[in-house]
Design a protein around this nucleic acid. Structure first.
Lengths: 246, 246
DNA sequence: TCAGGTACTGTGCATATCCGCAGGTCTTGT
DNA sequence: ACAAGACCTGCGGATATGCACAGTACCTGA
């Protein structure tokens, strides 16, 4: 019985490209994270190629659930993005001794196929060399962004004030500022020397967002996801405020 | 004599994909905007498929120069991005009566080829339907971002203070704030109703950046380009300050 | 046990952001 | 000629941001 490989990819062109490249294998296709999880969890030994940005359940969350369900699953992340946020998220969910891959979409067909076979057939991890410096940064004591710092980065990226963040995260204003200060250090902003003729040159908050964008710690797609989460949180606050009025 | 089509694309996988799709035509290949311009300007009737994000000379600037050199050139922009910043930039450089196309990279091979042929062989414009709402927005009186607003958006996205922007743009601080206010209106932030329990919920500046990211008015790639431009400007300021000291 | 590190809180203060009010200049359309 | 619109400047004031100083609690490693 042929071992089926699953392709989880919402972009029709990319899905077709990959299905064509691997047309000599038995394939299953999924167009979103939910569907991918349904299929993968029904396979004895899941072999999955997955995008990271997908509707319903993104690639990271899909992988986390699958690895909880089937720790021996082999997953190749095939992404446009070498964004640090993904590298960081992955590092937190990968089970010990897991065989996985992270391949960038700018790879041509032959090296792409080779990478996939390395993971699925040879049982070796395959990490795109372009990701090396990014992985290094996620492991550096001075530069790695911890969960508190990441959380407050998301909050300022949404445009929230200190007081709103404090409310959202059950902190004091000063607590928010501590996290921000810590973040600014990790992003290297506290050391920047940019002089203006009159007054300060740099707004720390906005500068942090700029550096984070350039470093791939946030991106427009994920910011939209976070916007959605924030809106849901607001709605929960509103109904709690209504309940308190009764 | 066969009419050559030029493919300008820095991503090797995408370049190969397109060269393969159009392998029955005479093709020239370029890996950056500079090279693309050299080739295209030597063709009698340039037929170009170009990416937007390319080293040395981005797709927009390449097109602007080519259209100045050869106004009859036919250009198909083939991009990952339906970002408003690109739609906006294009609208400002397209010569009257030009035949061009804007195709998103998520199109599968057959519709992609059809779009290219529509532009090159039939002489009709082809705009990806996914871009309709974005084009509408760039033409709406209430939502279209003008050059002043765009400029100050870039500045705050870099993390500059009002006073630094004032210095950079030869304005008063109040002039900067006027532009910002105008921008906030266009982004709809002035109308947002987000209530916090204590104090303001929203930091306008950061919120503007968040909305602009989600709307594709700025993105990480272009922010890096702008970062580079700002650094160059800073260096020029420094040497001017040294000159004044003599 | 003790010291160091991490994460938090409160207070105070200087500066930046945001915005209202008032006024000015220039361009365009009627 | 005049009015409206676009864009600018100065001033004043309320609030937010950023940071210094001081202190607390908890965890971990020696």
């Amino acid at each position: 019985m042929a071992m089926e490989w699953l392709i989880a990819e919402d972009n029709p062109k990319d899905r077709a490209f990959l299905a064509d490249l691997l047309s000599d294998r038995a394939l299953r296709l999924a167009t979103n994270g939910d569907e991918a999880f349904q299929i993968a969890s029904s396979l004895a030994e899941p072999m999955v190629i997955t995008d990271l940005q997908m509707p319903k359940l993104n690639g990271i969350e899909f992988a986390r659930r699958l690895w909880r369900h089937s720790p021996q699953a082999r997953i190749v992340f095939w992404s446009q993005h070498k964004d640090e946020m993904y590298v960081r998220s992955l590092a937190k969910i990968i089970p010990a001794e897991t065989v996985y891959g992270y391949v960038l979409k700018d790879n041509e067909p032959t090296p792409l196929r080779k990478a996939i076979e390395t993971v699925f057939l040879e049982g070796q991890c395959w990490i795109d060399p372009q990701l090396r410096p990014i992985q290094a940064r996620t492991q550096s004591r001075n530069e790695a962004i911890n969960d508190f710092e990441y959380e407050v980065l998301v909050d300022i990226s949404l445009g929230l004030t200190d007081m709103m963040i404090a409310q959202r995260r059950y902190l004091s204003r000063r607590g928010v500022q501590n996290r921000l200060q810590s973040l600014y250090v990790k992003l290297g902003i506290d050391q920047e020397r940019i002089a203006g003729d009159m007054g300060e040159a740099i707004n720390m908050r906005a500068r942090a967002v700029a550096m984070a964008l350039q470093r791939g710690l946030i991106n427009a797609y994920e910011l939209q996801e976070e916007e959605h989460r924030f809106k849901q949180w607001l709605e929960r606050q509103d109904s709690k405020a209504s309940d308190n009025r009764l």
